[in-house]
């Protein structure tokens, strides 16, 4: 199968105005993915599906990622003249990246028997601009999974015919897979709280460090 760079070059040549970025992958797999711009996403998706060499006719998986605001540190070696000597010095630059939501599609070809090609789309932010074009018109199998991303991450897919919640109930307003999601405080009791649950338990009971772990636990008898 063609490399992501080749796919990018051919798609950009075939479709005027399209811009595809390659997302680097530092893991041992080095599986690169194609970041496509939202405006031309449908055209690129149609190209990937219909191109005779690629024929990516099967969308096996669609998932979401929530990226919070983050700073990326980059270390670059810079030549500097210190006390008349030229030395190589590490220079660290910090880049602030504001948060966004991402949808990731894994594509395979049943006819050519190759894959996966990973494509990504990003929203502009995490609050107002959480809109992405739906790729359901290209791959029907994306329908339920886009609904799941809408349900759990809150990404609105334009062009999706039936964008409803799929796992949570319709009255639910939160998006549980977002990293800043805080679940409803339904703490009851824990016999042996630890870690996060211990922190939550402390909010409900006054801490008494001299008795920590020595609580007397009694069950309330409903019928007695």
């Amino acid at each position: 199968m063609e490399s992501p760079e080749q796919i990018k070059a051919r798609a950009e040549a075939a479709l005027p105005g399209v811009k595809i970025d390659i997302v680097p992958n530092g893991s041992p797999s080095r599986q690169l993915s194609l970041l496509i711009d939202n405006e031309h996403a449908l055209a690129v998706a149609r190209f990937l599906r219909d191109d005779l060499a690629l024929r990516l006719d099967f969308c096996s998986n669609v998932t979401g990622i929530d990226w919070l605001d983050r700073t990326v540190k980059k270390t670059v070696k810079v030549k500097k003249t210190i006390d008349g000597e030229e030395k190589e010095v590490d220079q660290t630059t910090e880049e602030k990246i504001s948060g966004y939501l991402e949808a990731v599609y894994h594509l395979y070809s049943m006819t050519q028997k190759h894959g996966p090609v990973v494509i990504r789309m990003r929203t502009t932010d995490r609050a107002e601009g959480v809109r992405l074009p739906s790729l359901t018109p290209i791959w029907r199998s994306a329908e339920f999974q886009e609904r799941e991303i809408f349900d759990l991450y809150g990404v609105r897919f334009d062009g999706h015919l039936d964008l409803r919640r799929i796992l949570m109930w319709d009255e639910f307003v939160d998006h549980p897979m977002r990293k800043d999601y805080r679940e409803a405080d339904d703490y009851e009791y824990e016999p042996t709280p630890h870690d996060d649950v211990l922190e939550r338990a402390k909010q409900h009971y006054a801490p008494r460090p001299q008795l920590d772990g020595a609580e007397k636990i009694t069950a309330t008898d409903l019928h007695g």
Partner: peptide, 8 residues
């Protein structure tokens, strides 16, 4: 829920 009684 069972009540956690803290003595002392």
């Amino acid at each position: 829920p069972p009540k956690v009684e803290r003595e002392g």
